[in-house]
């Protein structure tokens, strides 16, 4: 399926994180499911530190 073909149909969008993106898509008439997510704080090494400190 090409991108154009996909956009012919009603869109259902999953928005991860920034609320502004979800609002802009809703303003175009599309339905948006929100996933409340923010990247971990800190720096690039934090994800591996967190993984090693998991329960």
């Amino acid at each position: 399926m090409t991108l154009d073909a996909g956009l012919d149909q009603p869109l259902r969008v999953v928005n991860v994180g920034l609320e502004l993106f979800a609002e802009q898509i809703e303003a175009q008439g599309a339905a948006v499911d929100r996933v409340d997510w923010r990247p971990p704080a800190g720096g690039p090494d934090i994800a591996s530190l967190l993984a090693r400190l998991e329960d």
């Binding site: 704080a41 800190g42 530190l49």
Partner: peptide
């Protein structure tokens, strides 16, 4: 919180 996490990882050998 980030600084404490780094210190915790260091203290408990996960750094």
């Amino acid at each position: 919180f980030v600084a404490a996490l780094r210190a915790f990882a260091e203290r408990y050998g996960a750094a």
